[in-house]
Amino acid sequence: MATSQEILDALADYQVQCNDNKRLRRMQRDWSKLLHFVADDTDDSFTMNVVKGEIVSFEAGASGAPDIVVTTRSEFLCDMFWGDLNPSQKYLQGEIRVKASQEDIMRLDAITMIIWPDV
């Protein structure tokens, strides 16, 4: 199990990777969403705010009414934010559950695909 701090560290790296990627920023320039990530094995929650493709903030806890809710094990969350895990594969195995529109689910996966194309 990954601790809350480990996930926050992963999120910090994820924020840098996303915001520094010009191709991703261009693609996601019209994408503004509030995301909740829930670790179902530790009951930890995290909130991420994306404005026009830029991750402007993230924090521990679930705040606000989200557009997207991602629920999975804490280890998967951590691996996903470090770019060590293919979210689509886990999603297709039913190990990552997402509540969102199909379009948003694809956009979320696209972040990993663009930053770490070899995953």
């Binding site: 293919n86 594969q89 663009i114």
Partner: peptide
Amino acid sequence: SYAMARDNVLPRVFSNLHPDHA
């Protein structure tokens, strides 16, 4: 098809996203 390509069932080219329209 996109999801299948990401899952390595179809050639990876099917998971290519348009740089502007996603």
